[in-house]
Structures are given as structure tokens and as C-alpha cells.
Amino acid sequence: MENLNYFIDAVMTYPFLQNALIAGVLVGIVCGVVGCFIILRGMALMGEAISHAVLPGVVIAYMLGASFFVGAVITGVLTALGIGYISQNSRIKDDSAIGILLTGTFAVGVVLVTTIGSTSINVWHILFGNVLAVSRTDLWMTLGITVGVLILIFVFYKQLLLSTFDPTMAKAIGLPTRLIHYMLMFILSLVTVASLNTVGIILVVAMLITPGATAYLMTDRLPMMLTLSAVFGVISAVVGVYYSYIYDVATGASIVIVATLLFTLAFLFSPKQGVFVRWFRRMTTSKA
């Protein structure tokens, strides 16, 4: 309780902490919502690849003095196209193609960072986030991406649902399924940039997958799954920022740990899917 009061006081006093919280909440929402589609399409590894591929884009943008945003989207989408191209035009399967390009693009990013010298750009912050240094500009960018992505998903909800659930029918009725796939890749790149400060490139996949997976264990309807996932994302962000401030530990990692704990709880105790709950039900029914 004392810690909580201390934290609330600090939030009231320090704008950097306010920014951190707002950024965390936005990232929690947008990653939570996008993540549901990533999970249901079985693209968790693809999310990992796109988020890593963003590194060279960000560094090149930095070197040219361009916006992070543009650089990240270009390398993110190029990588998605590359993965598709390799798996369609050779005997290499999707997961291997992802493995090759994930590490390859990331390595290019690391090399670029080392050539420009570590004083000008902080690799640690790009990789693991630096939520306490979120500027006003960063905040506006994160807000813009969040609102834009949520609008896209809201408008094309019907198309996303059908192409995810039954791609063959989606194609049969003339939906551009390939375009929808690349739109999601584009969204993934955007979301990674939005999460750069909060959790960083390495851990953004956790924000995409973990809250969505937690929600998936709790409900049988997609709209509910999207909502719960966003809620879990927000809880992870707020509680994560709280602990990171109180105990002075890395913020991104702290957020991800909270998300993982929420998942563990759902995995054990979800009313329908929980391992412990199902075990308990078996015990009671076999006795009866």
C-alpha cells in the first residue's frame, strides 16, 4: 500500500512516468488486438521475424535522418515478402524461411549499429525498450499507430475473421486473401515501431502473443477474445511499469513477466480450458 501511494505520487509528479504509463497502455491495447489474429493464423513465428527485421530499418532511418517509422515498415514488409517468396519458390518450408530471414536481417541491423558507433544510438534501448524516456513525439506516434491500426481492424473485421477462419471460402467469394496477409504484415511492422520504446524489439512478440493466448483460454468468441486480450495487455503494462519503478528493474521485461504470469493463471484456472480446473472436474466426476 505504501509502495502504491509512492507510485501514484510519482505518477502525479513526473511527466516521464505519465508518458511511460500512457505509452504502455496504448501498446498493451494495440498489441493485444493485433496479437489475436496472429495467434489464430498460426503466425507467432512470423511476428517474431517481422519485429526483428525492423532493426536494420530503424538503424538505416537513423543514419539517413529519416523517420524510424518509414524505415521499420520498409524492412518489415520486405522481410514478409521475402519469406513468402522463398517458401513458394523453393523446397524450403515457411518456418525455415522465417528462421533464415529473422536472423539475417537482425544481423544486418547489428552490423549497421556497430559501424555507426554505439554512442550515437543506444542498441540496448532499441532491443529492450526504454519506456522512461518516452518523449511527447514518441507518444503521439504511438497514439497515431494505435488509433490507425484499430480503425483498420474494425473496418475490415469481417474480412479478417473469414480469411482467418476459412481461407478457402474467403478466396471462393473473392476476398483478396494475399492482400489481407500483407496488410497484417504491414500492421505488424507498425505495431513493432509503436512498441519500440515500451518493450523493445526482442520482447514485442510477448506483447503480441501472450495476452492474446491468455484471452484465447478464457472465451469462445472472437470479439470477446479481442477485448480481453487488450485488457490483459493494459494490465501487464500498468503493473509492469509499477514494479519496474518500485524495484528499479528493466521496464519491458517487467511488463512481459506480468503478462506471462497472467497467462500462467489462465492456463491453470480458466473456467473452461484451465489444466487445474479440468483435473479437478475429472476428480469430482470420477468420485460421483
Partner: peptide
């Protein structure tokens, strides 16, 4: 089009009526 059942992920979070509305 009525798909082959093996092509569908039956863990997907949709209710029966949601599927028919598609």
C-alpha cells in the same frame, strides 16, 4: 463452398451461429 473438415481449425473462437452468418 463447404470445406473439407480437416481444413478447419475447430478450436477457433466462433459460435455455430457466427459460422452460418459468414
Amino acid at each position: 463452398y463447404v470445406p473439407q473438415r480437416s481444413m478447419i481449425d475447430f478450436d477457433f473462437p466462433v459460435l455455430v451461429e457466427d459460422v452460418v452468418v459468414m
